[in-house]
Amino acid sequence: MFHIKSILPTFLIALLFSCNNMAQQKSDQQAVINSEPIEVPLHNGEARAYFASGCFWCVEAIYESVNGVEEVISGYAGGHTKNPTYASSNTGQTGHAEAVEVIYNPKIVSFATLVDVYFGSQNPIQVNGQGPDKGSQYRSIIFYQNVEQKQIIDSKKNALAKELNAPVAAEVYPFQKFWKAEDYHQNYEKLHPENPYIQNVSIPRLNKFKAKFPELLGEKNNH
């Protein structure tokens, strides 16, 4: 990757750019798409939601700026393999996408608002990627845990497609499992502000979101 998110072996880099990144069309992947959703219970009054929207460094920072969000964890979701890693997901063959787990207080911010954040902080018509990050591992997926959440997602996705007069690329998946990413990916934007990718992609994306949704920002981010 040009932004050097990690040093991958040469053969993996070659594979990443040569494969079709269409793992989501495999039969094993179709079984994931057709699964019944798993609902994550509240824990100490906190709920969890799951989103994939390109590089998880970017998405983590965006959701952490939202009022009512307690914590965001970077990881992998949506695929058919167990124990995905950064290297394996980057082959485009596991079905997983870089995703985040958003831990939030539903008394302060609703799932519907988190969906608004999701669609409002990405290029909704870009297929298999966001910005410079391309491949099925960077595709947009929004996960639902029950019928009500799916209805919210479908309604907002359909309204956005009508507004844009274009198909919205985000896939809608039943939530199955979230795999936490390697430790060095967590809070990456905060810990590595000097990284060229952070400076040129992550921070501009975050600032664009803040300018668009100032009313959703927590006090420490509302400036």
Rank of each mutant, 00 (worst) to 15 (best):
S6D: 14
F209S: 00
A170P: 04
E171N: 10
D28S: 14
V172E: 01
Y86V: 04
A97M: 01
G79S: 03
R205I: 07
Y144S: 03
F56P: 06
F175D: 02
G45M: 08
N21S: 12
H192Y: 09
A87G: 08
P174L: 03
V168D: 04
E60C: 07
Q122D: 09
I33S: 11
G68M: 06
A87W: 10
F178K: 00
N90G: 14
P124K: 01
N158K: 13
L42M: 11
A211E: 14
K156G: 02
A181W: 06
S110G: 05
Q149K: 10
G68I: 06
Q145A: 05
P106A: 07
K134C: 11
G218R: 15
H223K: 14
M1N: 14
F119K: 06
E171G: 10
H96M: 03
K162R: 12
S6G: 10
N128W: 03
Y138E: 00
S53T: 10
I153T: 03
V100S: 02
V201L: 00
G75S: 04
L217V: 05
N146F: 06
E171P: 02
I141F: 08
E163L: 12
K5M: 10
N146H: 10
H3C: 12
Y173R: 10
E215A: 13
E98R: 07
A14E: 15
I4G: 08
V59Y: 05
F213A: 10
Y144T: 03
K156S: 01
P167W: 09
K220V: 12
Y144I: 03
D116C: 04
N195D: 15
Q24P: 09
K210L: 01
Y173M: 11
G54W: 02
A169M: 07
L206W: 01
N105R: 11
A52L: 02
W57Q: 00
K162A: 14
F143Y: 15
Q130M: 06
G129L: 02
K208W: 04
G45E: 08
F209E: 00
E71I: 07
E60R: 08
K180E: 11
S88N: 11
I198T: 01
Q151G: 12
G218E: 14
E98V: 07
P106S: 07
V168G: 05
Y86A: 01
I7M: 13
G129H: 05
V69D: 03
V59I: 15
N123Q: 13
L216V: 07
I152E: 02
V172A: 01
K210V: 02
F56H: 12
N105L: 06
C19H: 15
G45H: 08
P9D: 15
K208H: 11
Y173K: 03
D154C: 08
H43L: 12
C58G: 12
E189R: 08
E215P: 05
I7W: 11
E148P: 05
P174N: 04
Q25S: 10
M1W: 11
Q186S: 05
A161I: 07
E46I: 14
S140Y: 05
I13W: 12
L206C: 02
F119R: 04
